[in-house]
Amino acid sequence: MTEYKEKYIRQIELPEIGTLGQERIFNSKVLVVGAGGLGCSALQYLTSMGVGTIGIVDFDRVSLSNLHRQILYSADDVGESKVNTAKKALHKLNPECIIYTYDVLLSKKNAASTISEYDLVIDATDMIPARYLINDTCVALNKPFIYGAIYKYQGQVAVFNYNNGPTYRCLFPDEPKEQIQNCDQRGVLAVLPGIIGLMQASEAIKLITGLGQPLSGVVGLFDMATMQWDRIKI
């Protein structure tokens, strides 16, 4: 058995994945926008599962208050670039994975050129304007994106713009006029972005391999405090 096959044998053993599915994972290119709580969680598993090419967009620096939930960073990394620190941690986890970093704010100037290089996007931002930019760019480029967001103990997750399915604007057509509070303003228990980020990573693997039924046309709502899961059709 080759080292490559041995590394992923527990996935390859699954009939719905198999050698072909693992090859699809290896040949896939995933862009993760936001290397915070959602992004760190999704990135770790996408890398360990063997996604061949990963892009990470984040202009932020690691702060002490990030460490409880942004598990790719440690105390020594405070003040360092998130994307560079994440790349180092992920390279250690899986040296085969090619990682491109974008130490910038995703903007109208760079969104299309960045997203066009990838098969799908994971929206792990904590800024509503960035979400609309990702949505509109993915619609223009015909790429699916996997949305995740949290509020205190609840999380939302959905696959948008997949096979002509609904987009984020089908759910919320316009940017809210009022500011919606994020983790920095409302607090967050570290495990929740971990859970939602992993849901995003699993949806990504489903799109890549064709496994199961993607959460397209539906928004999933998870309440960690009650462990309730709701599916709302869009």
């Binding site: 936001g34 967001a149 939302q156 509070q181 994020n182 409302r186 967050v188 972005p193 709502l221």
Partner: peptide, 10 residues
């Protein structure tokens, strides 16, 4: 019935 607002945290 469910009232569903957008979430911003990440």
């Amino acid at each position: 019935i469910a009232l569903l607002p957008p979430f911003a945290g990440g």
